[in-house]
Design a protein around this nucleic acid. Structure first.
Lengths: 367, 367
DNA sequence: ATGAAAGCGCTAACAC
DNA sequence: GTGTTAGCGCTTTCAT
């Protein structure tokens, strides 16, 4: 990092004049009272057309904008929604995970469209109760929480106190808060059914069932097996957390274990992609030897080679559903959880109707 | 999307009780005055240890939090920084572009670390002046603007009025605002030099020089040619905007044009990846026939196959520099623009010391 | 060490 | 139609 010399001169201390225009100023200049200005600017019907235009013109010319803080204080409102991304030290789950970031974009749009502001806040997952402060302190009206969470009880406790929160995630039994999520069971089933339909029989599962989402996907994995009259091989069900490193290790361990397999369902695209790369480095060809289905359909998956077959979560809809549900909660209603339908996106890593798996091809070592 | 029936019952209209605790309540319960509570909670030295603990305990027990809105109004402050992402209809540049999103993560961290709140705001690029309202209305103290912008003059106009804004982007001549950006000229030069060093001589440039960043990278492209005694082939310099579609079209046109080339420098990783895929679909092997260097080092590039050689922008540093610069501006100082050094990340698509390009290999058609 | 009172910039009765 | 007045929930003189 270097500082250049081009640009403005050093640092003359010249405090920014923050004493901006106020309503009183406009009032004085227009020769009316403050309330008249207030009314004129808020489109009250009690104001004469003449005064209104005079005030409006003045305001526009002087570049005046109503002070939202004061307005909110007076109105006891604050059109702000806080989006909270729990920050998990242990998992090192980070805001820059592709999936989170797509979700953020979708939320930003939905929130903006409804005339609200979006506060982005990261809180330590172990300090989750801190989110309530955002609302108690009047910083935001309500909270949208995103993230793999194993915080069911904390959330329930918040919701029990009528705390305005909506969370992205699985719908759980005895849940007091409103959730929006995709149907993870169905997603897991779709993925697994597709693997089976492509002729695979010995399927690996990658995921951390401590997370409700992953647990549901695993459930779908099992159901699909049952539907097809296949049995789940427990030695192929591996606990992998949501990091690339974990997926890499798991894949290596799996290869070393000697268990044979011809298909893999991973609970995130990042896992899937990492597994594919690790397989490739060890001379195994995807999808010829091992078919793979991921989850999320992040940007990456479309550009990855071979194109990743995956389960897409409808994020646009998710953003909208989250925001609308929160607004309903704020309105004193109790919206039902929303379950979005995941869709299978078939690309190259698992194709139905293609040739069946080959145990060893192109003289690939191992397997 | 379907509504499930599990979960809470329908919608009993039961307005959330927003009349939360106030300082007056604490005061009454503690048997002291409001001012005492205020002082106790803000750690004033004039309060007896006994009163302080009593008040603090009470506040903690009752889950009281000071109303930030009122506090800010009184203090004429608001520890909030708005991050603005211009939304460009024509380019369809979207918040979910991987690069923007990484930047957001980095900013969220930097802002949070400094005890500020981050407001995320998208504004139509054609309504750029709207950002000033964020500050005039007291919603935020200052603005950090991210995004490919061709809005130099508008920004200068804002800055001329002492408007607290810092922008991510190239440093331009006669610039009145503070910018933070990577050295795009150097980045372009690094990329091009690497291509040349790997033995390539007929280089393609993909980018839209209407954007200052891309223009500078192109400048670096030209310099590297000059340094190596090569000439830039104008028929290989193609205007491509920051979308995958545009890159795909450009690549196809390029192939149809019949011009031969053995290297490609793309102004974003997304362009690069798309170009590589399009080349592959047409039977051209990267990097054997065409070496490719991208720009940004987004997540994708690490997982893409073959690994994308690219120029990394140091986003962590960028976030920090942006925030610190803005805070300096808010403090009445005039920070100098920051120029971050880009670094070359060598992966597989352009490797120095590898075998020289082959015009046709593995019986690839065309070329 | 504590309290009373004024006021941050705005809105909304309530008068006229 | 417009002005007067009383707060929204807090901090901070200025008294005591």
């Amino acid at each position: 990092m270097k500082k250049t010399t081009t640009g403005k001169a050093g640092s003359r201390a010249k405090p920014v004049d923050t004493r901006s225009l106020q309503m009183a100023d406009i009032a004085r200049m227009a020769g009316v009272s403050v309330s008249t200005v207030s009314r004129a600017l808020s489109g009250s019907a009690l104001i004469s057309e003449k005064t209104r235009t005079r005030v409006e013109d003045l305001a526009r010319t002087l570049n005046y904008a109503v002070n939202i803080g004061a307005q909110n204080l007076r109105l006891k409102q604050n059109r702000t929604i806080a989006v909270v991304v729990p920050y998990d030290r242990s998992t090192r789950q980070h805001v820059s995970e592709p999936f989170f970031l797509s979700m953020l974009g979708s939320l930003a749009d939905a929130i903006t469209d409804r005339g609200y502001d979006m506060l982005l806040s990261r809180v330590d997952a172990d300090e989750l109760h801190a989110v309530s402060k955002l609302v108690r302190s009047g910083r935001a009206n309500g909270i949208i929480m995103i993230g793999q969470w194993r915080h069911h009880d904390q959330l329930n406790e918040l919701a029990a106190n009528d705390f305005p929160i909506v969370v992205w995630g699985a719908q759980l039994p005895r849940q007091l808060y409103c959730s929006v999520g995709s149907d993870n069971l169905e997603g897991g089933r779709l993925a697994t059914r597709h693997l089976i339909a492509s002729g695979r029989k010995r399927l690996v599962f990658f995921g951390d069932v401590d997370f409700p989402e992953a647990a549901m996907r695993f459930e779908g994995f099992k159901r699909a097996h049952a539907d097809a009259g296949l049995r789940v091989r427990s030695e192929l069900c591996i606990k992998v957390d949501f990091t690339a490193e974990s997926a890499r290790e798991a894949t290596q361990r799996l290869l070393l274990s000697g268990h044979s397999f011809d298909g893999l369902f991973a609970c995130s695209d990042l896992m899937a992609v990492t597994a594919i790369n690790t397989l490739a480095e060890n001379g195994h060809v995807v999808p010829d030897e091992v078919a793979v289905v991921g989850y999320d359909d992040i940007e990456l998956s479309r550009h990855f080679r071979p194109g990743l077959t995956t389960i897409r979560q409808p994020l646009e809809q998710a953003g909208i559903a989250l925001v609308d549900s929160l607004l309903a909660v704020l309105d004193g209603r109790q919206p039902l959880p929303t379950v979005l339908e995941p869709v299978l996106v078939e690309r190259a890593t698992c194709v139905v109707g293609a040739k069946p798996p080959t145990v060893a091809q192109r003289g690939a070592p191992g397997a």
